[in-house]
């Protein structure tokens, strides 16, 4: 199975830049396994990423890849999908990339329900630039820019995506790598904007400062704090406070943007005749 994964990587670029124990490689592995399971033609598969540790992922993939500007991965991906709707487009972003500088692109891609599959690597921090807090840093956690503990509340990416109009929303952790792969497959099959949040460990910038241990210990923390959607339904908000709900969280039907755009083009072409 891994040989299959490696065949879709630019092996001359490995080993990758991510720190020992960083979960980003686990997310990347799940993504490639999902792409293989979907049976995507590599020449018709596009992976677009933004800026940050996680967005380096696109550079390791042997598909059509685009490493774009900070927060703008979805804007570039929207252009690609509108110009070539037959392509399968995956968008890789970090939590800061997607919800801070890219927050507007994120909510509007969801509102349009454009057929993109967004995988958000949520490590709760800006790792690459030195461990500043992001909109996903939990309250009271320490970062280089919040040395006394973070004061602001964190976004809930899943709720944000759902509220903005995404038609498929799911979450998994790197500990639940098999589930993560399955959710990416389901998200890609959804004809519309799909968001898969991958909870991943940053042992260097986040774990160390918050005394969460190394990558392995952070991975085991994910195991111990994740509850499935089914389990969560029977739990009180108090019990759920420090838990991560994993699985398929939301699914809806809505008109897909490239399809409605194509319809308009066809209608206008008809009028001209």
């Amino acid at each position: 199975m891994l040989n299959q994964v490696v065949s879709s990587l630019r092996q001359e670029r490995l080993p990758h830049i991510w720190c020992p124990g960083c979960g980003n490689g686990i997310v990347l592995s799940a993504l490639v396994k999902a792409i293989h399971e979907l049976g995507c033609d590599p020449d018709k598969t596009v992976v677009v990423s933004g800026i940050g540790c996680s967005s380096r992922a696109a550079g390791y993939l042997d598909f059509n890849t685009l490493h774009t500007t900070h927060g703008r991965a979805l804007a570039f991906a929207t252009g690609i999908k509108l110009a070539r709707p037959e392509l399968t487009v995956f968008v890789l972003m970090g939590d800061g990339d997607a919800t801070a500088i890219g927050g507007n692109h994120f909510i509007h891609a969801a509102r349009r329900n454009i057929d993109l599959t967004a995988v958000i690597f949520n490590n709760s921090i800006y790792g690459m630039t030195g461990g500043q807090y992001s909109p996903l840093t939990p309250v009271q956690k320490r970062t280089t820019t919040a040395p006394y503990g973070h004061l602001e509340r964190a976004f809930d990416i899943a709720e944000l995506a759902r509220g903005a109009g995404a038609t498929y929303v799911a979450r998994a952790t790197t500990y639940h790598a098999g589930l993560l792969k399955n959710l990416i497959v389901a998200g890609a099959r959804n004809k519309g904007f799909s968001v898969i949040e991958a909870i991943t460990a940053c042992p260097t910038a986040y774990g160390r400062r918050n005394k969460l241990g190394n990558g392995l210990q952070m991975l085991l923390w994910q195991r111990d704090h994740a509850v499935t959607v089914k389990q969560a339904a029977k739990m009180s908000p108090e019990e759920l406070r420090d838990k991560i709900v994993i699985g398929e969280l939301y699914r809806a039907e809505a008109p897909e943007f490239t399809a409605t755009y194509e319809e308009l083009v066809a209608r206008l072409a008809q009028k001209e005749k």
Partner: peptide, 16 residues
């Protein structure tokens, strides 16, 4: 079982 392969962040281990 493949747990090592699925959780290796560095694409090191292959289980067939």
């Amino acid at each position: 079982c493949g747990r090592c392969e699925d959780h290796c962040p560095d694409f090191v281990i292959s289980v067939e």
